[in-house]
Design a protein around this nucleic acid. Structure first.
Lengths: 106, 106
DNA sequence: ATATTATATGATTATATGCTCATATATGTA
DNA sequence: TACATATATGAGCATATAATCATATAATAT
């Protein structure tokens, strides 16, 4: 869906786009999820690997992964009892990487 | 501040960068703030203009503007009793615009 | 000084969010 | 089957967030 214009020639964002955009940024608004995504950006990881690396409970990581999975920001593959996660949205990962670079050079 | 590396050669984001990045994305995670920013991106606006355009109470807009002002995402100038707001962070505005374009072409 | 207009602030309330615990599910192995 | 390991889920709690109301502040005009 494209955006519409009102009588002042101002473009207004349609509801669906607004929802998708805000949800995507919400995913990136939490330090824990940023840590997880940035880790996966560098290396495909199992749930426990993530928990150990970012120093969080396994359940916390699992809940956050479900959140990211629902937004299709990560994908996974199974290997026995282990599940490996990796990024699944190039645009969002580029946005995150850019913002980290921008913020860390200040 | 730059990021460090742990023993697995994984880059870990430093706390300050993590805070700045998450705060910035938090600003973009709320539909109301997105509407306001996207409006200001197109046209410098007074508080009441914003409230009318996005159909929100004046106080709601004022609170959100304070939030955006604290993060230096918007700036303002006074003209009598009227205060005009406009964007003040090119990088964040580009990120927002890109994401809106990306989401609206799906 | 008083009134008017525009904006900002503080307190309150309802809802959302993130973490944790206990437990469930799934896969592999003895 | 029974057990171990890895991951997922649901409930509860503490905190954060966004909107609203009432009110305060600031600038201007009469």
């Amino acid at each position: 869906m494209e955006s519409k214009q009102n009588t002042d020639n101002l473009t207004v964002i349609d509801e669906e786009t607004l929802f998708v955009v805000s949800q995507t940024f919400k995913a990136l608004s939490d330090p824990t999820r940023i840590r997880i995504l940035y880790l996966l950006y560098q290396k495909e990881c199992s749930v426990n690997e993530i928990a150990e690396t970012v120093q969080l409970k396994q359940t916390t990581v699992s809940h956050q992964l479900r959140f990211l999975k629902n937004l299709r920001l990560v994908k996974f593959r199974r290997e026995g009892t282990t599940i490996f996660y990796s990024p699944d949205d190039e645009h969002v990962m580029n946005t995150l990487k850019e913002s980290i670079n921008h913020a860390s050079h200040m």
